[in-house]
Amino acid sequence: PVAAAMAFYQSLGKRPIRLRRELVGHVANRLQAALWREAFHLVGTGAATVADIDAAIAHGPGLRWALMGPCLLNHLSGGPGGLAHTLDHLGPLMEAMWADLGDPRLTPALKATLVQGLERALEGRDRDAMVAERDRLLVDLVRQKRAAPNLP
């Protein structure tokens, strides 16, 4: 049954992954939740605005993440030494940031801060136009990735 499901989704052009054990949520959802956790913490503590968070991801690692996963990107960042070099070089900094990550709770105040921050960031923008543009760009990106033989 698992192999059939994998084959079905692959036939649709998807890239399914197989979980090795039971989890709450799927791998992509869990990774997304980890990012949201720190984003909401940064907003809640006043370290950054909603617009700052979105810009940091959309114009930073999000561009690379649309092409490759974090493990492969770290490997390529390490130059000839690959992932081992990246971990040796940046490992202590990563661990320092991990130790400093927040543990926010979605209190009414944090929810209001997030919603108001997004409303300010989107002021004057047409939601339907944004959705249409996002969808067009995503379709283009998927087509481009399919045509790139060296991307995983």
Rank of each mutant, 00 (worst) to 15 (best):
P1E: 02
P1V: 10
V2Q: 12
V2R: 15
A3R: 07
A5M: 08
M6F: 15
A7P: 05
F8V: 06
F8Q: 10
Y9E: 08
L12Q: 13
G13M: 00
K14P: 04
R15A: 05
P16N: 09
P16E: 11
I17Q: 09
R18T: 13
L19H: 12
E22M: 09
E22P: 01
V24H: 09
V24F: 11
G25H: 04
H26N: 11
H26C: 03
N29H: 15
N29K: 06
R30P: 00
R30A: 13
A33E: 15
A34I: 12
A34C: 11
W36Q: 12
R37Q: 12
R37I: 09
E38T: 07
A39F: 04
F40A: 15
F40S: 11
F40H: 15
H41K: 00
H41Q: 05
H41M: 06
L42T: 01
L42F: 02
V43T: 04
V43I: 11
V43F: 05
T45M: 08
T45L: 01
G46Q: 01
G46E: 02
A47S: 10
T49C: 03
V50M: 14
A51R: 10
I53Y: 13
A55D: 13
I57G: 04
A58N: 13
H59A: 11
G60L: 08
P61M: 06
G62M: 14
L63A: 10
A66Q: 14
L67R: 12
G69D: 15
P70C: 06
C71Q: 09
L72C: 05
L73E: 12
N74K: 14
H75M: 04
G78C: 11
G78E: 12
P80S: 10
P80M: 04
P80L: 03
G82H: 02
L83C: 04
T86D: 03
L87V: 09
H89F: 06
G91H: 01
P92W: 03
P92D: 04
E95M: 11
A96E: 10
W98P: 00
L101C: 12
G102T: 01
G102E: 07
P104E: 04
P104T: 00
R105T: 09
T107D: 04
A109R: 15
L110N: 08
L110W: 13
K111V: 15
A112C: 03
T113M: 07
V115W: 09
V115Q: 10
Q116K: 04
E119S: 12
R120I: 07
L122N: 12
E123D: 12
G124D: 06
D126H: 09
D126V: 03
D126M: 04
R127W: 08
R127V: 03
R127M: 02
R127K: 06
M130R: 12
M130C: 05
V131R: 14
V131T: 11
A132V: 02
D135F: 00
D135Y: 00
L137R: 15
L138D: 01
L138W: 02
V139L: 14
D140C: 09
L141P: 00
V142K: 10
Q144K: 07
K145Y: 03
A148L: 09
A148Y: 02
A148V: 01
P149I: 06
N150E: 14
N150A: 11
L151H: 12
P152W: 11
P152S: 08
